[in-house]
Nucleic acid binder design. Structure first.
Lengths: 357, 357
DNA sequence: CTGTTAGCGCCTTCAT
DNA sequence: ATGAAGGCGCTAACAG
């Protein structure tokens, strides 16, 4: 094995000059060629391919044989043009951060199984991307914040199938949505901080203003506070946007302003990570001096210093369910208006557990 | 803002019954409609759309106006069918792990800029997926190990544009490739372990057998050993596949077998992470008892305990360059046969630096 | 500079 | 069960 690899040594001088390839000569074998070779009509071949009518066994066999012999591959664009179906699904996201990896995996697994192509597009324009519109896909998966409300309504007018991820539909638009349970888990997390670790001045580092997850996580935080008779102190809440650097800056700001606190609840793990960095730079020990917790249980969170206490959001499952919903929608099968996936507390050490015995 | 979000409360009972949407009625406004409304021929509209010939200013304005008024969107499939160009590029990977996030970002940025759609497909079949073939894309980005050699050659026969990522082409196939410099960096990394930290029994935890990166990283390791007069001990090398769990098991195995070692070089960061876990479970302190280093500098690596000493591979840049190469190929412009991106040592603390002052 | 027209590859009625 | 033929929406000669 090593031997075979060795000859692949990147010897730059080995390549004498630049490559220049000729245009792809796509095999122009059409359904007509198959029909002729098999001695049948194109209609028959088409019927066989799409199983759209019964074909006599012998003819079927003959067609199948010539198709494989000729390496025939139906021209998707021609099919799409003729049928007005694309057999493709789109996914629109704002960016391609690590966070999405599991979701991609989940989505991909069901779209592939269902026989759809998957087109992924990342953009922060919030506009309906033509490349993922009606002519190009049969439906669209929209991650929160990646599409403006106007675009959403427009899509709805066109009866274009859409399912929202981590975002509920505007107004009374009947767009299905799949997301996770935020509030109850958030409450339990803060309960834990208060009851188990005696924290009383807990900072909440928000996500983006228009993010529903962050909103409900904050509601859980507030209710936990109230349930324990702790006052809600606006000073302890800071804006953020799920970015590490921003969370770090916000934490530094709190520290500099001399605001007293003994715990930080980041709206997501990324945010918690930012807080962790800021605290460390400032010489505050985590979790001895201040507890830090997050939300999502991203892959890295278990490996942080200290391992992050957080809430596990079933991100891959969210992807699977959302994709399944969209497939159902496209196939005219009934779908759930809302799928709220359960979350689960993950106690590690950044809250203080494990270090005190 | 919170108010507007509040009404979106996930009140499951609020949705009385299941949704059932009607099939998308894609706006069937064709180029013909535009032509009629604008009082010109379809050819003129087509010319205006594709800038394929000059159109008188006034006519252009009129066409433009009616296009926006009618919300006309060209039917991509029809264009593709007529032109035999898809204006799309494919990306084939084995899986959708975190590792790819930066690469996706890099690729997406250039394909979008160049006006191509991007189709992503993950599969371990190593077969040429029809959905990314000649009829569906103008070219394909192939990540190492996701396509069999036979498929590669077949694609080559068809003159189908391909660029390989982290893998050199088989035989003398003229397929451009973009990857990173492995050997020199690996050597410097091991030099560091030996010279700065006095390590002499260094384990190398391999990647997959058919992975070139791992091969060259091992070559660098061997040369560094040789340069310092240290023997190459086969006992210190274990198989792996870039998976954390496998690396963890391999490390445990070494420990159990009583093989003495004072450092572990993981073929990638994921592998190093596995070693870290195993060592911790076994009560070996990192870096006091054993140094651990990796390769890639994945996003999480800086946040590990202790922060991982590794080699930074410019993954996003790899994506950008590969995509750019493919665009050039498709556009019949010259491309480099091989792009070898520089890597850089990233000294953190898992090697022992910083903890001893 | 503009219009007419013949396909691109496939599906799908309508006959047979 | 099978063929023949008309489109799907657009582009690209070819005329003018």
């Amino acid at each position: 094995m090593l031997d075979s690899l060795r000859k692949a040594h990147y010897n730059v001088t080995g390549y004498s000059n630049r490559l220049q390839m000729t245009r792809s000569k796509a095999s122009s074998i059409t359904i007509r060629d198959v029909a002729r070779h098999a001695g049948v009509s194109v209609a028959t071949v088409s019927r066989f391919i799409n199983q759209t009518a019964t074909v006599s066994p012998e003819v079927a066999a003959r067609v199948q044989a010539t198709m494989t012999e000729l390496r025939f591959v139906p021209h998707a664009s021609a099919q799409r043009l003729a049928t007005h179906k694309t057999n493709a699904l789109g996914l629109l996201v704002e960016n391609l951060h690590d966070y999405f990896s599991p979701m991609f995996t989940g989505i991909e697994s069901v779209t592939t199984t269902a026989g759809f192509d998957l087109l992924i597009s990342s953009s922060h324009h919030k506009e309906f991307p033509v490349t993922l519109g009606p002519h190009n896909t049969d439906g669209l998966l929209v991650f929160w914040g990646s599409l403006s409300e106007a675009s959403l309504m427009h899509a709805c007018d066109l009866h274009f199938p859409i399912v929202l991820i981590h975002q509920s539909p505007p107004r009374e638009l009947a767009i299905p949505c799949v997301t996770v349970e935020n509030k109850a888990a958030s409450m339990r997390l803060v309960d834990h901080l208060i009851e188990r670790h005696g924290r009383r001045r807990i900072v909440y580092l928000r996500g983006p203003d228009d993010n529903e997850d962050s909103y409900w996580r904050e509601m859980g935080y507030r209710e936990a506070l109230a349930a324990h008779g702790l006052p809600f102190d606006p000073q302890l809440v800071a804006a953020g946007n799920y970015e590490r650097a921003v969370a770090e800056a916000a934490t530094c700001q709190l520290l500099r302003a001399g605001v007293a606190f003994d715990a930080v609840f980041g709206a997501d793990d990324e945010t918690a990570l930012g807080a962790l960095s800021a605290l460390r730079s400032a010489g505050r020990r985590v979790p001895q001096d201040v507890s830090v917790v997050g939300f999502d249980d991203q892959r890295m969170s278990a490996y942080l210093t200290p391992p992050l206490t957080t809430v596990r959001a079933p991100t891959e499952e969210v992807g699977r369910r959302a994709a399944q919903q969209l497939v159902n929608l496209v196939r005219q099968k009934p779908v759930e208006p809302l799928i709220l996936l359960p979350t689960e507390l993950v106690i590690r050490q950044s809250c203080g557990c494990g270090s005190e015995g």
